[in-house]
Amino acid sequence: MDGYEFLLYLGVMAGVTYLVRVVPFILVKNKIENKYIKSFLGYIPYAVLAAMTVPGVFYSTRYFISALCGFITAVILAYFGKSLITVALSSSVMVFVSGLVVDCF
């Protein structure tokens, strides 16, 4: 694939991705009043995140056990309302430490 061809493919790829994001964003101008649609849209972020997290999180590291440690750490800290960055970094540290421990055995 030469440079010109690469840019052509890149243009189509980036163009479609951009339009999918922006066209609905600028077309929807008014607040939606229907309570079912409002609720549907309100639940979407949680449903998206839940589907992305489980079961993906358990295969995000080399060892299932270290992913599980990171997952449990995150759930406990999140349950007690810790901030995004605290939860994220704590589960990272937990995965780092448990990964080192598993590596030693």
Binding site: G56, S60, T61, A74, Y79, S92
Partner: peptide
């Protein structure tokens, strides 16, 4: 690898930090 693993779970940790408190407050 151990660094990649740790970086990799940060994203999921953040997802969990968003989901869990809201799920705790709302049955829906």
């Amino acid at each position: 690898d151990v660094v990649c693993d740790a970086l990799g779970i940060a994203l999921y940790g953040m997802f969990i930090a968003i989901i869990v408190p809201s799920a705790r407050r709302s049955k829906a």
